[in-house]
Design a binder for these strands. Structure first.
Lengths: 307, 307
DNA sequence: TTCATTTATTTGTCCTGGACAAATATGCGT
DNA sequence: ACGCATATTTGTCCAGGACAAATAAATGAA
């Protein structure tokens, strides 16, 4: 059996790498890479090797590097850059918990991982579990993935296990009468839902009523859901991979659709490096900050009620 | 407080409606709709009203209508078309189960819904629950959504509840030693994961080992996951919203990346109306057919082993 | 030197208008 | 009514140009 090197159309490459067609074409003309072949219709055909390199480039860009530096480079130099980033960031807190969890990921033991996490949760309590275990663990997993040490499906598995454990916990402390009523989700381009899940866990513990819409909800639908659930706060999460330039416009747009008395809080690594603060939304760079926001909301409400 | 009619960029409309920029521009020049305004940079700006109409059009297209018929039409006529479709398809099996579940969706009672579903599952057993309850229920929810009677966040809520109940069940019957080892997921443009979850439940009951990767896994990562899990079968699901013309190429592409001894099975409403059968993959138009495929795989393996 | 402000470059997104093939509809002969 | 050949429809791709926001580099003041 001959193995045909799979070769992808520009649309397929867009799907696989997350780089838009426009970007792929522009890079080609600006940096000379990628350099796809052409089929008989004159359309671009990308060999698998180049697609792999594009993935690597995308990861490095998510880590903050700029295209001009890396798009021209060859495989080897890219790998070197990824490694360099590794030593700078990875070392300080590679605790035991992370190590054992990462280990389970690599040997593909979903049940073991889930059990491990659940045990930790019971031992530490939900709040500490989220703050001290899951948060750094997410970080470690993200780093490992950026370094190419983890496949996407392994990251998927991790996400899944954590989700499972957290949602179970949230369900058991959830109180429909709790206040404020918090709606949590992500915008359509953001598939990562762990951030809001962590917030949901902490908020639910504090007695808020959390409604999680899952990920990728269009702004219009968020607005509708806010109305039909009577939510007072909307929490969004932006991962580091979310295009920076779109965070502020997205928040503005959402604001437009909501009544003025609904709060918008935005968290996640994607909001940490914002140049200026958004005008009408509050940033939650850390989970601690999220708890502070909740406390302040309550203080404010109480003062209004008593006056 | 003045409510500013939100107006969206072409990229935002693409996200919200699922219609690509190219399509939006072409429709504009071919049918005169949408007819966006322009901002000071000369870029298209879509008023909310037109975006709403585009959503409706997209739904009708997913139902099989062609653009030339509907893109020019006004709101009223579109609504009429949607209604017409309704009476034709909706009536026959609007059973009691569906009605009560839909009711709970509309009053936003997540806990009640989940409890209701779980009770049904215990009463019927997992297999019957999936085949006789969840499958028609999915259908009913999909129809209701297509008719505009359900908001996306309500559909989200439904999906979530079902997922919760099914995964719980799957986990408790899962057997790591089971055969075949089946990997289930969807491709990057397909966010709907209920289909594979139903299959996973049925297969797990039959003693197969199911590895669910969640949704939206790039083909390359599917291939890697197949290798690292030693999977023998890959199950994909395509909803009716998946662009028809891309189903076959996508299957071909995936085949190229997998070894020849790995089976590819494709199910979901998106595969039901395919013009021709794919060359190297098996279609699972119904859940019963999925079970048949599993049985045949086993028969085949046994005959090989015994010869 | 260090910091803040101005100027230059980089970079993603959008634009027009044209080409094409696959999918679908229509007309025709049987 | 059915099968086949010819139109039409429709989504995707292409080139190459324009622009503004983001970022880097240069400049001058403290």
């Amino acid at each position: 059996m001959t193995i045909v090197q799979p070769a992808l159309s520009i649309a397929a490459v867009e799907r696989e790498t997350g780089l838009s067609k426009d970007v792929l074409r522009k890079w080609e003309s600006r940096y000379g890479f990628p350099a796809p072949l052409r089929d008989d219709k004159g359309e671009r055909v990308y060999p698998a090797e180049q697609v792999g390199r594009l993935r690597l480039i995308k990861r490095l860009m998510d880590a903050g590097l700029r295209p001009a530096r890396i798009v021209g480079e060859d495989e080897e130099r890219l790998a070197a850059l990824a490694r360099e980033r590794h030593v700078r960031a990875g070392q300080p807190e590679a605790g035991r918990v992370e190590a054992s969890a990462l280990e389970m990921l690599r040997v593909h033991d979903p049940d073991g991982l889930r059990q491990h996490l659940r045990r930790l949760m019971l031992r530490q309590g939900l709040a500490r579990f989220v703050l001290d275990t899951i948060a750094p663990l997410n970080h470690a997993v993200g780093e490992a993935w950026a370094r190419g040490e983890l496949d996407i499906h392994e990251e998927h598995l991790y996400t899944d296990s954590v989700q499972w454990v957290l949602r179970d916990a949230i369900a058991s402390v959830s109180d429909r009468q709790g206040r404020p009523r918090v709606l949590l989700t992500t915008l359509p381009e953001e598939p990562h839902g762990l951030g809001i899940l962590m917030v949901a866990a902490l908020f639910a513990l504090e007695g808020a009523y959390c409604i999680s819409l899952g990920t990728q909800t269009p702004a219009e639908d968020i607005a509708r859901a806010v109305r039909s659930h009577g939510a007072e706060v909307v929490v969004l999460s932006f991962s580091i991979a979310y295009p920076q330039r779109r965070v502020l416009p997205a928040l503005e747009e959402l604001r437009q659709r909501l009544g003025g008395d609904v709060r918008v809080w935005a968290g996640g690594a994607g909001t940490a490096r914002l140049s200026r603060a958004p005008s009408q939304a509050r940033l939650l760079p850390t989970l601690e900050e999220a708890l502070r926001a909740l406390a302040e909301w309550r203080a404010e409400r109480d003062s209004v009620l008593s006056s």
